[in-house]
Design a protein around this nucleic acid. Structure first.
Lengths: 336, 336
DNA sequence: CTGAAAGCGCTAACAG
DNA sequence: CTGTTAGCGCTTTCAG
């Protein structure tokens, strides 16, 4: 059916080893024969069979990308960064959504093993102990993006969440706010949860502001939980004047809630988000936020993976810079 | 290095053909030997090599997904729909971003040919003539999602854009609006452009409203162009009271612009968007829109492709239902 | 029901 | 510099 290296060899009147050589740019082929072969390839419209090649060379040039859910706003940019670099190095990406479910993660891993992915990029806020165990014995290079393991057993690319939260809170403090609530992530989340809460606390402490655990609300990073936590804020007798949210989507939920109840942002509440997703930018008022360099995180992770595959040395845990983007959802306290 | 079918055969004390048979659930294997083999597989922690299998059976169980840009809000849900169905049928997806660039499209297609993708899903608003030509001669089943070709040479899944735009406009008319502007897509876009403009025109016409070409503005579906076109609207002496935007993101841009200039939505302008992206839902006020069933479009496209691969008959062009979602960005004209 | 053998398309020695 | 050969790991006749 489709044309093979054999057909090309016949057409060009050479052995198939020779065809393979020109295909792989092996130096030891005379210009003359190279030309003959190239001509034959063109004429036959030949495309090498990457599957056959992979079987032989034991490298598929494809890498698995495991992600909770591509339709969640945080991930597409990361994937884009990955794909751009992958593409540059002639790798392909196999995308797998896991919803953070154990079963799906297991299946995904098996698929990647069977399809002989050269490497794996795991993107998520959290990684379960079980998955870590699986990863350790799978024998495929892996790099974690947007998460890391406490034991530093895996390569990872993240941002310094503690410091980012610290800076965000500090920003609010500099604006004159003294009573600052936090809509946090999950209490047990070792990446987007705990460190951001710690950063928030450290900023307050450092500025001599008293920490009030009653105005730390816990959510799941989604709109609804931002909205609902804001409802709680509005019920407070002693309302905060500013809010630090552990995700943009929750920040927007909180802002919507406030506005829907007749309050103004930033006049009544200064709100700062986290992540730097499009929603924050296009919301009205545009939401000030701490932007995670998502595209770069993906790109960097892919670069690291490629280096690992090439046997080069790479740093085990890299942290990229975040960026505080000032927009219109925060203002100096008291000013009107 | 890694354990192969041969190792399993040896361990189980059978021929490798037999191992292959139990792997593929071939009926003619005695329970006894099947058990022996299964045990050996477990003990050795054997995973079949899908690459080797693919080479032999000429099917890779992977399908290529060509998309302009995964980080553009319209696409992730589609991809999720695709992946869910793919996963269900044990297919994998290879994701390729093309930015609608000829060069990248060509490269992507070559990769997919070389990697022997079983099928291709092409997602986009538009498809170029050149790419169509390439697709025709590539000899891999293809289905188009969110776009189609005029000649109906390809399988496709879309919505009825003309009718959707018609309904959106009609909705505004029912609310009492008589002067309705449109922020349209690209004049030459055969899917998100032309048909939506036509639907808008038909609705006006049918209701006896005069069409004013001066209040049809052309954009590129993005925030900025919604914002800028709204600036033009605001300069009009005879301002419209309602606006139909060919994308949610432009609708949000327009709303932001209006609000920034002291106007109220929906009090001063009723705005209806198109697509049904998250941004429209979480914007304040939440934007009324015509939702394209993106997840379902992806899922349906993948289902069609699988059927085609199985040699089943499938409808050439399927249109899915859109849905007008009423939120808070439109109101009865004149009411306060 | 099962073992042996051929071969998918390609690469990498190995001779020449 | 180049042709030939031996597999990569698996499926699938073909005998038995």
């Amino acid at each position: 059916m489709s044309v093979t290296i054999k057909d090309v060899a016949k057409k060009a009147g050479v052995g198939l080893g020779t065809v393979s050589r020109v295909l792989n740019n092996h130096p030891s082929v005379s210009e003359e024969t190279r030309k003959k072969v190239l001509d034959a390839i063109k004429e036959l419209d030949y495309n090498p069979n990457a599957i056959a090649r992979s079987l032989k060379v034991k490298s598929t040039k494809s890498i698995g990308v495991m992600i909770p859910d591509i339709s969640s706003a945080f991930y597409p940019d990361i994937v884009r960064g990955i794909e751009d670099i992958a593409n540059e190095y002639k790798y392909n990406i196999i995308l797998l959504n896991t919803d953070l479910k154990r079963e799906k993660e297991k299946e995904a891993l098996i698929m990647l093993k069977e399809k002989k992915a050269d490497g794996i990029l795991f993107i998520s806020n959290t990684i379960s102990e079980k998955l870590k165990r699986d990863f350790k014995k799978v024998n495929i290079p892996i790099v974690l993006i947007a998460t890391k393991d406490d034991e530093s057993e895996f390569y990872s690319v993240t941002i310094d969440n503690e410091r980012a939260a610290y800076e965000a809170t500090k920003y609010l403090i500099k604006l004159g706010h003294k009573r600052i609530a936090m809509i946090a992530g999950k209490k047990e989340d070792p990446n987007a949860g705990i460190p951001r809460i710690n950063g928030y606390k450290r900023a307050l402490e450092e500025s001599g502001l008293k920490l009030d655990e009653n105005i730390i609300f816990y959510g799941d990073y989604k709109f609804k939980s931002g909205y609902q936590n804001m409802l709680k804020v509005l019920k407070l007798k002693d309302k905060p004047t500013a809010i630090f949210s552990a995700s943009d989507t929750m920040a927007v939920g909180a802002a919507s809630c406030a506005m829907q109840h007749g309050f103004k942002v930033p006049d009544d509440f200064s709100i700062i988000g986290f992540d730097g997703v499009e929603l924050a930018e296009y919301f009205y008022p545009p939401i000030t936020t701490v932007k995670q360099p998502r595209y770069e995180m993906g790109a960097k992770g892919m670069e690291m993976l490629i280096k690992i595959l090439q046997g080069e040395d790479v740093e085990r845990e890299v942290q990229l810079d975040f960026e505080l983007i000032e927009r219109s959802s925060c203002k100096v306290k008291g000013e009107s």
